[in-house]
Amino acid sequence: MSAPTTTTQNIAEESLRSALSSSERPKRPNALSASLTFGWRAMLKIKHVPEQLFDVTVFPIMFTLMFTYLFGGALAGSTGEYLQFLLPGILVQTVVFITIYTGFTLNGDIQKGVFDRFRSLPVWRPAVLVGALLADAARYTMASTIILVLGLVLGFRPEGGIVGVLLAVALVLVFAFSLSWIWTALGLVLRTPNSVMGVSMMIMFPLTFASNIFVDPQTMPSWLATAIGFNPITHLVTATRGLMDGTVTLGQMAAVFAACAILIVVFAPVTMYLYRNKK
């Protein structure tokens, strides 16, 4: 017992030499494969830090129950009728709110040195962002599932059937992906994850509440109803409701896709510019 015990193994020079000589540079991965690898990383992080799923599990349940039972009677006469109106909206609200975690996480990543390593690798540069957004899609899907199951249990009956519901969720995911580019840009500009959170909340609260998620804008002053007509969230909620009710129009869908296109065309290049020139 007199020999000192060490907790770490010693560096084996020979195996280090052989590890060095056995390394050959493989062909660069393509953009999709690199993005999926970053997505895999995000999924691993969920595996190791499962408490980060709190926001995609507890919040949706809380919001749905709160709005249905607190305001349902007052807003629509009965909670059952209100649920029919609210559920597509609450789905939208929950998912777009979760998107702000993208910027929060990205900012936290940058604070640590690991981002420098990623950026010094010869991979398709947007992959790290696209991969993170892909993994976020998994979180959005989880949140959507929870809301839908809860809604069905509480008595929500979508006229659009299963196809309508699945298309509605898919549309919300596409919009969430497009909207995330705002948060990635913010995540690159602001200094701390908490400031990213604060600014995102400041944008998201008016954007979701000043929309048709909770009440029909026709009950509002006309100037506000007009303003709400310009809110992309309003268009998304209209189309989502339409898909779930089976009454969607091409125009409603087109409005959402136009909003998505504008968000990506404006904020994806801004994000990439900031990413390339990040100090």
Binding site: P29, W40, G113, D116, R117, L121
Partner: peptide, 27 residues
């Protein structure tokens, strides 16, 4: 290759996962 001043590995992942991640990203 760059080894930054502050650990440029992902603290949430295991050592093995970190190296697999880099190896996959390199192709």
């Amino acid at each position: 290759s760059l080894t930054g001043q502050f650990a440029s590995v992902d603290e949430d992942l295991t050592g093995h996962e970190n190296l697999v991640l880099i190896a996959r990203l390199l192709g």
